[in-house]
């Protein structure tokens, strides 16, 4: 059979969602942000809620997320996305609201906003991309940088005696009564991506119930910051990040399936 006979519109089984804008992604080759964006958009498309969704972009590599997602978006000051989203959701309780933040944004400068939005039980979805590094500013140490892991501000590896320990913010947030659903996923293999999409779908479905924060961490690579090729970085992530940040559900609501 000739390839031309396969490549026909009626034979399409997968293509980029229409909820992406035409703009090429600004992320480095192999960066997980693009896949995370795509899964998010696929969920919004499948739920048919593009017209009811407001997203909050952070400061970090995904500061320009609004350039790529064809939905109404706000760009928040560094770390403040949960406070911004709090007001958006409270003023428009029937819209779908999400924040999209990196580790520096969510777990360092924005720790207070993160914890308090979670503790108040705000009814929005938080998407947390954890790659253990400040990517946009050039690879500095993040709150989630592993012990011994190198970054430009810990060039000899994170020394926990001097620099403190990495923060497992997700486990911490899972303790709070205002947090309804917590899961940790990845986007580096087809299976991981499928699970992430399911988790994001759960998060947005749970948002409808208005029972608190639905929180999806995505452990991701930063091949530029880690100074590896994309596939090397994904392997390194499996060998080093996953033991410290194990994948899987952390807090699952005890209720009938949604």
């Amino acid at each position: 059979m000739d390839i031309k006979d396969i490549i026909k519109p009626e034979n399409i089984v997968y293509q980029k969602t229409k909820l992406f804008t035409e703009k090429p992604l600004s992320y480095c080759p192999g960066c997980g942000h693009g896949t995370a964006h795509r899964m998010l958009l696929e969920v919004l498309e499948e739920m048919n809620i593009q017209d009811k969704t407001v997203g909050i972009a952070p400061v970090g590599c995904s500061v320009l997320a609004y350039e790529f997602l064809d939905i109404d978006m706000q760009q928040a000051a560094h770390g403040r996305a949960p406070a911004v989203a709090t007001a958006v959701k409270r003023l428009m309780p029937d819209k779908f609201v999400f924040t999209y933040q990196g580790d520096g944004d969510l777990a360092a400068i924005g720790t207070a906003e993160t914890i308090h939005a979670c503790n108040r039980g705000e009814n929005f979805t938080m998407i947390f991309i954890n790659n253990g590094i400040y990517g946009m500013t050039g690879g500095q140490m993040a709150p989630t940088t592993l012990p011994g892991m190198r970054a430009s501000t810990c060039p000899f590896g994170r020394d926990t005696e001097i620099m403190g320990n990495p923060l497992k913010i997700t486990e911490l947030l899972a303790q709070l009564p205002g947090v309804y659903y917590v899961t940790r996923q990845a986007v580096h293999t087809p299976n991981a991506v499928r699970k992430t999409k399911k988790a994001l779908r759960n998060a947005f479905e749970y948002q409808k119930l208005k029972k608190g924060i639905s929180f999806v961490e995505i452990v991701s690579n930063c091949n530029s910051g880690w100074k590896m090729t994309p596939n090397q970085s994904n392997k390194w992530m499996e060998d080093n990040m996953f033991p410290f940040y194990p994948l899987g559900d952390i807090k699952v609501p005890q209720l009938e399936k949604v």
Partner: peptide, 18 residues
């Protein structure tokens, strides 16, 4: 009642954006 003045003004930002 926000957790800080910083959070409060950013809530204002979120609300004003709507």
């Amino acid at each position: 009642q926000a957790e800080s003045e910083v959070a409060a003004i950013n809530m204002v930002y979120g609300g004003a954006s709507c």
